[in-house]
Design a binder for these strands. Structure first.
Lengths: 378, 378
DNA sequence: TTGTAAGCGTTATCAC
DNA sequence: GTGATAACGCTTACAA
């Protein structure tokens, strides 16, 4: 059976919908047809191959495949069937080369293994998907040079936009941002001296901190400790400030020795608990920079025989999925993670799709966290 | 100052290393130079622009930028400096179009918010990075048609390979796999009737199940329940089989009523506990399909006032990060998640880079889990 | 050592 | 309606 003969056997309902971007081709029934087609499909079939087989020019094929009205409905169908039979898959790169849009956005994270990050990324991916975009994932491991290398790589891949979570890069970054050509939005940016000419999504750390500290105060605590996060993160500075404001609003004197250093990870929380219980006058409650810190603290407390919340009330920040499953379930400030991912993606797509060459100077969305009361403070 | 004049001001140490793929361009000191360059960088600069500025042909530029030996060392330097100054970024898509390699692999997951998946993906991403590849992430939400659409999209993006985790697609898939043109490796494939002409990485479910059940038996238990995972997953079938074999090896009669349905999620575990304690003769130990199930069960037990492991010993499967932090810390079978991600990525890259057109019929790597004893069984 | 030209798979602008 | 033809930015023979 020759190719010409096969080409005459058109399948009627080969396509199950408009081809649009051409991703629905797979549904055609040809899958189960003559194995000769398999072989044909092996060799990448291009628009030109279809043109040759259909006896038309490649531009006609292009039009037919993109549902252009500028093509005879009959030949359009014929071409679509043929494309389907031959196992055609449009080359997104070639298309991007001429259209200038890749329908791809780059996402730079510290590590995807961080449950907080993972949920944010899920929000991003799903909204990207809804808009017909795909996501390139890149990890920075919190190393600035890896982060900037990732951005450069994304530039080479001609992404339509970039989202960076928990960026460590500040002023140095901005120069690169201007060169990248695609919009860059930062989510929970951790750098102190940024905040000019950028697009950001971030949680209101100060507000969340007020919620957490006030909750502890309302529970009757007045000796309240704060375990810090990693140094030089603006989020930590802001959370500390909120903690101090809550204290002062209730006329509770601020005791700097009750601020003990952590690192945003369980081990930091474990060490912090040690430091706290060694004090002559330990606190009755503690507000931790984040849930991971609180969870480490919880674990150390269990090992040290300290009852939570009896001896010590504990509240965290983030509301990672783990928080409600630890023992006791952890009170915390819930960040709308998926929502933030969604917002970041929508912002970057809006920027990418605006044909207005001059973008707004900056755009910063601040979302508010929510107090989640669980057993660790009751 | 004209472009020509600027072009004469070559920066000496503009590049800090071999250009290779051209991702190190950003490090050049020009960042802080004349703002005229900024403007130039705004308009995408191509190899031809550099050629024009340098007064050579664009092929010479191409060679210079790729460290080809076929170019005068002096002009090479001149061109590299120029490229750097002008803020050149190579177009990976254009390059891919001609070389046929995109240095990109697609990763399809159920959801990245699953901590198990996230860790596997981290293993993938980091080894991809080490090999100079990038990762496109796509979520299937466990919906077969979304999964297959994702694969089709990846085909359009001309990825060099695809990794699918926890695939639900079976025979139907294989046809598509043959058409994709790029190697596809499945990791912890969940489909019953697959297992021919594919490349897979999976954990030895049967073996892990033996470990878990034997551990419970060694602890003196003989009434041991099993909470199943989602229906029709081969992993569940295999774990159940391992459980049964362990029982029979110790001459413990198999009681089908001790196998209660779960769904692989906490809620399934919570419901399962309810079912167990309502029995006249409840089990003294329970082996859960996975950690999420066990964690739900733990929580329900706490609420029902059942002591773990006093009243009921519990063991899970997976060893997600959460497992060691719940209360009591959960005994489980640890899957080498990052390792599996690494193996999958290396397999797909090996397949992609082998210029041998005929690939091995199939290649299946089975890794063994490890018993992780914690307080929930002691 | 360098330049010319062809081509990768598209879309887009013209004519016809 | 359709078909040449020219891009898009790059690599790579083949010539010079």
């Amino acid at each position: 059976m020759t190719l010409a003969q096969l080409n005459n056997k058109f399948l009627p309902d080969c396509l199950d919908g408009g081809m649009g971007v051409g991703y629905t081709l797979h549904t055609c029934a040809i899958n189960h047809l003559c194995s000769v087609y398999r072989v044909l499909a092996m060799e990448k079939v291009s628009i030109k191959d279809i043109a040759k087989a259909a006896g038309v020019s490649h531009s006609t094929v292009s039009r037919a495949l993109r549902e252009s009205p500028l093509v005879n409905v009959h030949t359009k169908e014929r071409i679509q069937d043929l494309a389907c039979e031959m196992g055609y898959s449009p080359d997104a790169q070639a298309r991007s080369l001429v259209t200038g849009r890749s329908y791809t956005v780059g996402v730079v994270v510290t590590t995807i293994a961080d449950p907080f990050v993972a949920e944010v990324v899920q929000g991003m991916e799903s909204t990207a998907h809804d808009h017909g975009y795909t996501v390139i994932l890149s990890s920075s491991n919190s190393e600035p040079e890896r982060e900037i290398a990732a951005v450069e790589m994304l530039r080479a891949k001609r992404v339509d936009g970039v989202i960076v979570t928990s960026s460590r890069i500040g002023a140095l970054y901005l120069d690169n941002v201007e060169r990248i050509g695609a919009p860059v939005v930062l989510i929970n940016n951790h750098n102190e001296q940024s905040g000019h000419y950028t697009y950001t999504i971030s949680v209101d750390n100060h507000h969340g901190s007020l919620l957490a500290t006030n909750h502890l105060i309302n529970q009757g605590h007045s000796r309240i400790a704060y375990i810090t996060g990693p140094a030089n993160h603006s989020s930590d500075t802001e959370r500390l400030a909120g903690y101090r404001q809550a204290l002062s609003e209730d006329s509770i004197p601020y005791d700097p020795t009750l601020v003990v250093p952590g690192d945003g990870k369980p081990v930091g929380g474990m060490r912090a608990l040690q430091a706290l219980i060694e004090r002559t006058q330990p606190p009755s409650a503690v507000f931790c920079y984040n849930d991971m810190t609180a969870i480490g603290l919880l674990r150390a407390a269990r090992e040290a025989g300290i009852s939570i919340p009896g001896d010590l009330a504990v509240i965290g920040f983030d509301d990672i999925p783990l928080a409600s499953f630890v023992c006791p379930p952890l009170s915390t400030i819930s960040q709308p993670k998926k929502e933030m991912g969604r917002l970041a993606m929508e912002m970057v797509l809006t920027l990418a799709e605006s044909d207005d060459p001059v973008r707004p100077e900056s755009s910063d969305i601040v979302v508010k966290g929510k107090l989640e009361v669980r057993q660790s403070t009751l």
